[in-house]
Every structure is written in structure tokens, then in C-alpha cells.
Design a protein around this nucleic acid. Structure first.
Lengths: 202, 202
DNA sequence: CCTTTGTTTAACCAGATGGTTAAATCATGT
DNA sequence: ACATGATTTAACCATCTGGTTAAACAAAGG
């Protein structure tokens, strides 16, 4: 073998970088090859087409953005603590790969059908449904205000993800440098929890 | 003149449709020409290049998404009423052109520099700054809890815009048809106000 | 009618892009 | 050393894409 390290992995790594940065339509196979330091023909040798390569990258990104929700959701915990932990962990997770959300959301909007089946086969899916049942029951018991679990979920995810999606806007309007943005995000780990909990107080 | 109605406007209308649907990288000049029912060369006759045409479309979209905030923000009103009105109107405005936000956000992420100057020259910009001052003062007076005006702003905009950006995901996970989605949005006009106000209660 | 000016069309072009091919190189088991 | 199968390369191809050009056409003024 001439390869220093696994070529397949090298390609995927490069493809990730280019696809996430430029999107499916904007990404060039040549750029991916350059990024991986290999010949363009090798991309087609290992992964038949641009679409095949993209699908692998997208699947992983999709799981990363949506999947991490499940980890926290199914752990036994008081509801308030669970929500606060969820928000904190989720924001921290997104912050590790801040460009994934806009990539995933944009591609999903480009090809909505593509993603419909993908959703229900997502490992986090059952946990989300259980969590929503928990919300309804807690509402009936009077532990929290009675709210639509879908709306609650939307509120949480909106406030966690949107700042990353709108990052250039936020930095352009309110802040100058990346340090201040990181501080803003850090502050949100607690703040978003506050917002949700105060709304849920009966 | 052979034109039935203003050709320039016809082109812009078609360009809007294609650019918003496919993005800058995914849009084809031929598709825009077809959509407008004219020859491809006419695009270059009226607007020199793809980039020039795109810039016009993007500017209008950008103003539509961000600009509508100003209208409500500078009207004299009790703070709570102002926030509720803001949320209601903003969601209604976005709902009229639900695909604009993801388009704008994605293109901004593709070329963050492009947008930095555009922001401060936005008519809504001064109103936003005044609103943020109002929040600080209301906090000091004890009318509301003391919160970061940037975070407040982010929370509002997140919960208003994100559902449209994540629409295919939401419909895939929770709902089936467009009617249910519209109901979800309708419900949010009041709900998002509730969330914000309950958080701001001192 | 003819000139001038603005508008529209068809044909064309150079470069980019995704993809292919055939030959070369390498690693390994015999 | 040699045969074999996997890996890598360079050259190539068909198509697409943004953009250009020259000529046709229309409208208005003289």
C-alpha cells in the first residue's frame, strides 16, 4: 500500500469540509480531491459519484445535529433538571461543529423528500416521542403549565440552534470578534434554560 | 416596443423565484430565462452578470427579512404590548415569504463579508438599537427583569424565524400536511409572546 | 421612407465540471 | 521472481454554464 493512512477516511474528511462549507451545489469534486491531496479520479474509485459521497457526509451531519438530543432525553431525571441539562449539552454539542446546522437545514430545504424517511429511522426519534409524552403528563399533573409538547420542543431547539445559523448576522449587528460570540453562546447555556422553565412554571 | 409588460421587472421576478429556491450556486441563468419566458441573452442585456442579478434579489430579500422589525419597534407602546405586537407581526410577515429566511441565512454564511456593511445601512438598524436601550432602562426601573438586550433579541428572532427554516424537518417529524403547519405557526403568534413575557416578569 | 435608438433572438465560445479509461504502480501470497 | 488483485495516476470526454456577438426587429422622429 502506498497510502500513509486510510484513503477512504481521508476522502470523507475532505468531502465533509468542502460540502459543509459550500453545500452540495457549490462543492467541486476537484476541491475535495485537492483538500484530500489526491487525484480526482480516486473520488470516483472509492465513491461512485458526487451524490453518493454527499449522502455519506450528509447522513453523518444529520445524525450529529439531531441525534445528540436523544442521549439526554431518556435519562431518568426531574423534568426541570432534564430540560436544563438538555439545553446545556445540546448547545455545547452544536458549538463543537457550528457550521453543521446551516448546512443540514439548507440541504433539507433543497430536497425535502430526501429526508422524510431518514427522520423516523433516527435513533433519537423514540426518545423524543417519549419526552413529549412526559411533557403532557407533567402538564396534567400540574407539575408544569399545560403546553403543546411540539411547541415546547420547537422553542428549545430554536433558541439552541438559531444563533449558530445566524452567526454572521449576529456578529455583524451586535458584536465584533469571535471571543464575544463564544461568550454569548456560553451565557445561553443557562439563559435558554431560564426562559423555558419560567414559561413552564404553572 | 415588443414587450407586453416591463421586461426588467419580469426578469427580477423570475430571478427571485429561482435564486430563492436554489441558492446562488444552484441557480442556472437558463432556468431564470425560462421562468421569465425570455432568451438567456436578455438577462445579460439588462443585468450584466449573474452576480449583479443576484445582488439585487438578495438585497431585497435581506431587507424583507430584517427590515420589517423596525416598523413596530419604534412605535410608542407599553413594553409588553410592544413585544407581543412585534412577535405577532414579524411571524405574519415571515409567513408571507416563508422561504426567504433560509435563503438569506445560507447565502450570508457563504459570504459573511458581503453582508457586514449591508447591516448598518439597513433602515431598521437604528430602531433596533433604540429598542435595546429601552430594554436596559426598563430593567433598571424594575419594569422587567434585567436581561441582556442582545439575548432577548436573539430569543425573539430565534423563535420567530427558526420554524420556517426547519419547516421540512418539523413536518417530517411531527406533522403531515401544510394545514397543520400553518396552525402551528398561527398558534406561535401568541405563544412566543407568552414565553418572552413570562421570562421578563421581574 | 429612412435613420436612429432601444429590444430581442439565434448561434456561438471558452472554461468549468462530473465522470471515464487505460495504463502504471504497489503490496502480497506463492 | 512472478502472478494477482488492489490502488493510483494522467489524459481524456461529453456536457453544462456563464457570457458574447452579430444580426434581426420594432418604434419613434424627421
Amino acid at each position: 500500500m502506498a497510502q500513509e493512512r486510510n484513503t477512504e477516511e481521508l476522502i470523507i474528511e475532505a468531502a465533509k469540509k468542502i460540502f459543509v462549507k459550500r453545500g452540495l451545489a457549490g462543492a467541486r469534486m476537484q476541491d475535495i480531491a485537492d483538500e484530500a491531496g489526491i487525484n480526482k479520479a480516486m473520488l470516483h474509485y472509492y465513491y461512485r459519484s458526487k451524490e453518493k459521497l454527499f449522502e455519506i457526509v450528509f447522513n453523518e451531519a444529520f445524525s450529529k445535529v439531531l441525534g445528540r438530543l436523544g442521549n439526554i432525553l431518556n435519562q431518568p431525571m426531574p423534568l426541570e433538571e432534564k430540560i436544563r441539562t438538555l439545553v446545556e449539552n445540546y448547545i455545547a454539542n452544536i458549538a463543537e461543529t457550528p457550521y453543521l446546522p446551516i448546512f443540514v437545514l439548507n440541504e433539507i430545504n433543497q430536497q425535502p423528500e430526501m429526508m422524510v424517511k431518514r427522520v423516523s429511522s433516527q435513533p433519537a426519534f423514540p426518545d423524543m416521542m417519549l419526552f413529549m409524552k412526559e411533557i403532557i403528563e407533567a402538564g396534567k399533573k400540574g407539575i408544569i403549565r399545560e403546553v403543546s409538547p411540539v411547541q415546547l420542543f420547537l422553542n428549545i431547539v430554536s433558541m439552541c440552534i438559531f444563533p449558530f445559523v445566524a452567526r454572521p448576522l449576529i456578529q455583524g449587528i451586535f458584536l465584533q470578534d469571535n471571543v464575544q460570540f463564544d461568550m454569548l453562546i456560553e451565557e445561553r447555556k443557562k439563559l435558554v434554560g431560564d426562559v423555558i422553565i419560567s414559561w413552564l412554571k404553572p
